[in-house]
């Protein structure tokens, strides 16, 4: 029973965030030069008379005030109807669901790899400050931290797909193959390069932050006391370091979900991977307003839930952070 109130508080806060995101993104859409009727008609624009256009606009409720239109949209949103995507000719919710399944394989594995590898590298580098290993890891982290994702992706495609031919150049499966025919191995093969690129970049920031926290710990009273007890550097890093360094690592890992989402848009574009990122670009370029709004809301939900999980995890690791807000 004690858990219900904090969870309710969290959910209410989440709803508030989503409402704000809905309001802002809707306002941006309204302010944008996109004409939904033009976007809907596409190339058939020339074949439609001004009277017919006016009829469509009236049917869609464009003659009403912005507030009323927003109200309509919000009401539909709450009832679960996100609208119709004219780019994919499917309900927006279906497009997002399908695309997200693909993206989560890419995002999830890249996120997991970057978090785990980044954390381990940071702990090792921080525990052995000034050693050769530390120098190598730090240099690597600084270089990748300043590398743009799309550029690295293009280089990776050039090297591994075009020159060496180890990995496919595009898509989530072989061209022309039906979804059901693609085996798991083939899927993984297609995922390999995008995941590696995305993970490689995510590792850097987590490594650097973990390393900094480790350096701080190794000079702290806790470490000196442990050394006085006869502990080795490895012992201190293992027993004290892992706990202390995991707080910033978790913050960063979950805060970077949004960044990873942004990165995946570029990566999916370069690798022509049919995920949510690619759908976002298509929706933006072809003025698919309902899809764009849907994706904005979904991304906000995804990132907020990530932060919520991070908040809850702090209390587990650091007892000084009271789990008051759960």
């Amino acid at each position: 029973m004690r858990l219900i109130a904090p969870i309710a508080k969290r959910v209410a806060r989440l709803a508030l965030v989503l409402t704000c995101v809905a309001l802002v993104s809707y306002g941006l859409m309204m302010a944008s030069p996109i004409d939904p009727v033009d976007a809907y008609l596409g190339p058939q624009m020339a074949q439609v008379s001004p009277e017919q256009r006016a009829l469509i606009a009236q049917r869609w409720g464009f003659d009403e005030s912005v507030a009323v239109q927003f109200g309509h949209w919000l009401r539909q949103l709450v009832s679960g109807d996100l609208g119709w995507s004219h780019v994919y000719n499917q309900p927006v919710s279906e497009v997002i669901a399908q695309r997200f399944q693909r993206s989560i394989a890419l995002l999830g594995s890249a996120w997991l790899i970057s978090a785990l590898v980044g954390f381990s590298l940071g702990v090792v580098a921080g525990a052995k400050e000034g050693s050769k290993l530390d120098n190598i890891i730090s240099t690597y982290a600084f270089i990748t931290a300043s590398t743009p994702a799309f550029w690295l992706a293009i280089l990776a495609v050039l090297l591994f797909s075009v020159t060496l031919g180890w990995t496919p150049t595009c898509c989530a499966g072989p061209a022309g193959a039906l979804n059901q025919e693609v085996t798991l191995a083939t899927r993984l093969h297609h995922l390999l390069l995008p995941v590696a690129t995305l993970a490689l970049l995510g590792i850097a920031s987590i490594t650097l932050h973990t390393r900094t926290r480790m350096l701080e710990l190794m000079r702290s009273d806790v470490a000196t006391h442990a050394f006085a007890q006869g502990a080795s550097r490895l012992d201190v890093a293992w027993r004290h370091g892992l706990r202390h360094a995991s707080v910033p690592a978790i913050t960063l890992a979950f805060a970077s979900l949004g960044e990873l989402f942004g990165g995946s848009i570029l990566i999916e574009q370069v690798f022509a991977y049919p995920g949510l990122g690619q759908a976002t670009v298509a929706a933006g370029l072809r003025s698919d307003v309902p899809l764009l709004l849907g994706i904005a809301l979904f991304t906000a939900l995804f990132v907020s839930v990530g932060n919520m999980i991070a908040d809850s995890l702090y209390g587990v690791i650091d007892p000084r952070i009271k789990a008051s807000g759960l």
Binding site: D221, V222, T224, R239, H240, R243, D318
Partner: peptide, 8 residues
């Protein structure tokens, strides 16, 4: 007293 690890 900060020699005690606060997380253990």
């Amino acid at each position: 007293l900060s020699a005690l690890d606060p997380l253990v």
